[in-house]
Computed example of a mutant assay.
Amino acid sequence: MKQQIINLVKMALAEDIGSGDVTSIAFIPETAKSQGRILTRKSAIVAGLSVVKEIFRQIDTDVLVTPRSENGTLLSSGETILELEGPSRSLLLGERVALNFLGKLMGIATLTHSYVEAVAGTDVIILDTRKMTPGWRLLEKEAVKAGGGKNHRMGLFDAVLVKDNHLASLGSDQFSTLPAIIQQCRFHHPEIKIELEADTLEQVRFFLNIKEVNSILLDNMSLDEMREAVLMRNDKASSVRLEASGGITLENIRSVAKTGIDEISLGALTHSAPWTDLSMEIY
């Protein structure tokens, strides 16, 4: 378990528990033991199991957490995600925090699964973006993978992605100076991916002539523009991958996939995923 996640769980528990669960202390004997389960109230993809284990580990090592499913599993409404056993007060201390983490992460996994299913039968890969909850990036990216998607770059450090603001910083000389800058990026970072964002087909045509480029992001292009970009890529630099992004929904994603592009990145996977409705039953 990464220290970042351990710290996130610690913070979540501290803000919820505070000085103690005054209700459980009043109603439940300190020595009481219980069993319980967490179940889904709707069809959903499982994600976040390791976080629940960490939540209850921090609360009470006497709590036993037993998963009854695996990350990436599609469950129907009413099915059990995991079972719990231990001190009753401890189970209730972790209830809301566990449901919050699971609900959010399973929501991301489930939405990702919907997009993956929408492009089934094509070779298109569904990618996430950096539009994520601060502090939750590792968890949210794992949830995307649980839903069948793949991760784009983790941050600013593990890939070169030249966007419009980077190009704007070059002023009117961007076309003449960009190839040399990209060559320097490859020299200093020989192993990492280099991707350039294109808003126009003119940019796509130019970027395809820079041999160090691995991928071109087609930003908010129409279906016809994407098809034209694919034809240019196939003719000039067949090894360059094309990624589509911007304005893509479940309603139009299959049409985008059929243009011949290789990848589709969606911020919605993480910033707009509805939480999964979950419940914890104690018995």
Rank of each mutant, 00 (worst) to 15 (best):
Met1Leu: 15
Gln4Met: 11
Gln4Lys: 15
Ile5Gln: 11
Asn7Ile: 11
Asn7Glu: 15
Val9Thr: 11
Val9Tyr: 03
Ala12Glu: 13
Leu13Glu: 02
Phe27Leu: 14
Ile28Glu: 07
Ile28Gln: 04
Lys33Arg: 11
Gln35Met: 07
Gly36Asp: 00
Arg37His: 05
Arg41Asp: 07
Gly48Ile: 04
Leu49Pro: 01
Val52Cys: 01
Lys53Ala: 14
Phe56Gln: 05
Arg57Asp: 06
Asp60Asn: 00
Asp60Ser: 07
Val63Ala: 10
Val63Asn: 11
Leu64Gln: 10
Val65Asp: 03
Pro67Arg: 04
Arg68Gln: 07
Ser77Cys: 09
Glu79Pro: 05
Leu82Asn: 02
Leu82Gly: 03
Glu83His: 01
Gly86Cys: 02
Arg89Val: 02
Arg89Trp: 00
Arg89Phe: 00
Leu91Met: 00
Val97Gln: 00
Ala98Gln: 01
Phe101Pro: 02
Leu102Val: 00
Leu102Lys: 09
Leu105Asp: 01
Leu105Tyr: 00
Thr112Asn: 10
Thr112Ala: 08
Ser114Arg: 15
Glu117Tyr: 09
Ile125Phe: 15
Ile125Glu: 13
Asp128Gln: 07
Asp128Ile: 03
Thr129Asn: 04
Lys131Arg: 10
Met132Trp: 15
Trp136Lys: 10
Arg137Asn: 09
Arg137Ile: 09
Leu138Tyr: 13
Leu139Phe: 03
Lys145Pro: 00
Ala146Met: 04
Ala146Leu: 03
Gly148Pro: 07
Gly149Cys: 09
Gly149Trp: 03
Met154Pro: 12
Met154Arg: 12
Phe157Gln: 14
Phe157Ser: 14
Phe157Trp: 15
Val160Ile: 14
Val160Gly: 08
Val162Cys: 03
Val162Met: 04
Asn165Glu: 04
Ser169Trp: 10
Leu170Phe: 08
Leu170Trp: 03
Ser172Gly: 10
Ser172Gln: 11
Gln174Met: 14
Gln174Gly: 10
Ser176Thr: 15
Thr177Gln: 15
Ile182Leu: 13
Arg186Ala: 11
Arg186Phe: 13
Arg186Ile: 09
Phe187Asn: 15
Ile192His: 13
Asp199Trp: 04
Asp199Glu: 11
Asp199Ile: 05
Glu202Pro: 02
Arg205Lys: 13
Phe207Arg: 08
Asn209Tyr: 13
Asn209His: 14
Ile210Ser: 01
Lys211Glu: 09
Glu212Asp: 06
Glu212Thr: 10
Val213Asn: 03
Ser215Trp: 05
Ile216Asn: 03
Leu217Asp: 04
Leu218Arg: 06
Asp219Met: 03
Asn220Trp: 04
Glu225His: 08
Met226Tyr: 03
Arg233Gln: 12
Asn234Leu: 05
Asn234His: 07
Ala237Trp: 12
Ala237Gln: 10
Ala237Ile: 12
Ser245Gln: 02
Ser245Phe: 05
Ile248Val: 09
Asn252Tyr: 12
Asn252Leu: 05
Ile253His: 10
Ile253Trp: 08
Ile253Glu: 06
Ser255Gly: 11
Val256Ser: 06
Ala257Leu: 03
Ile261Ala: 06
Asp262Val: 02
Asp262Phe: 05
Glu263Ala: 07
Ile264Tyr: 12
Leu269Tyr: 05
His271Leu: 09
Ser272His: 06
Thr276Cys: 14
Leu278Ser: 00
Ser279Lys: 08
Glu281Val: 10
Tyr283Pro: 11
Tyr283Lys: 14
